[in-house]
Amino acid sequence: MKSYNLTHLKELEAEAIFVLREVASQFEKPALLFSGGKDSIVVAHLARKAFYPGKIPFPLVHIDTGHNFPETIEFRDKYVKELGAELIIGSVQQSIDEGKATEEKGFNASRNLLQTVTLLETIENNKFDACMGGARRDEEKARAKERFFSHRDEFGQWDPKNQRPELWNIFNGRKQMGENFRIFPISNWTEMDVWQYILHEEIEIPTIYFSHERSVFLRDQVIMADCDFIERRDSEKIEKRIVRFRTIGDMTCTGAVESDADSLESIIQEVSAARTTERGTRADDKRSEAAMEDRKKEGYF
């Protein structure tokens, strides 16, 4: 007998496309949060598939901290142009200039937390009622509790103890005025799934995911890229190392790993042998055991 069974990547793809189409149908003004990182690139790719041969029926939104890797911005602009999609940029620098956010000080200063201010403002100004993102449940323990359709109150807050039950594949996107949703089409994907999918679909990603030589320094055993946005201690010496990035966030809070993986195949081999989590190099998660939960409650992704 013929077997009608999808491979797991095909099943995950079908699920994500279903979610993306639900968003387009259930909301009036959805947007896709696009950071230029691999996860949001995969979501954009899936959106392309979901509405093909039509165009993606919503804009891409980038919350720009001003502390991005230059390679990410370069990729973002090129990719959006290829896609023929609209790009909306929310600038953290502008939020700071307007006095709506205050820059952190000191050696570990980061604009990661300030993103929330700019994100909520961008949502409000553009009247977005649903923001899709590439967050995955396997990334972090608070994210493991997320719904596909995550309801936020009028302040953008997440109430983890009081989430709507999500049954079967029936998604309840009903809301009061002023409230909105965060939506995570690739909730069920793991880091490995994302890499395998990128390989299988031949999706282009920023060059910093691949091994390259870079000026770096060591801080709390994490390899940080040298840049103008980080204040270095005298003891932190700059050196050249062969590195790559497993995740891409701000330059101030994203650490590199030493690696000579220069192709998708070698990255996959590296990931399958990895003994630390992807976000292990993310300083923003290390602030406390509940760092992610606390940020999410306030409106972070």
């Binding site: 323990k141 608070a142 493991a144 909730s187 069920n188 509940a290």
Partner: peptide, 22 residues
């Protein structure tokens, strides 16, 4: 598997948590 602060404090699981392995 206990991802929320309240869960760790009370030593109980409150909400569905999704885990992945292969």
């Amino acid at each position: 598997t206990d991802g929320l602060r309240a869960e760790r404090e009370q030593g109980i699981t409150i909400d569905v948590a999704y885990r992945y392995f292969a």
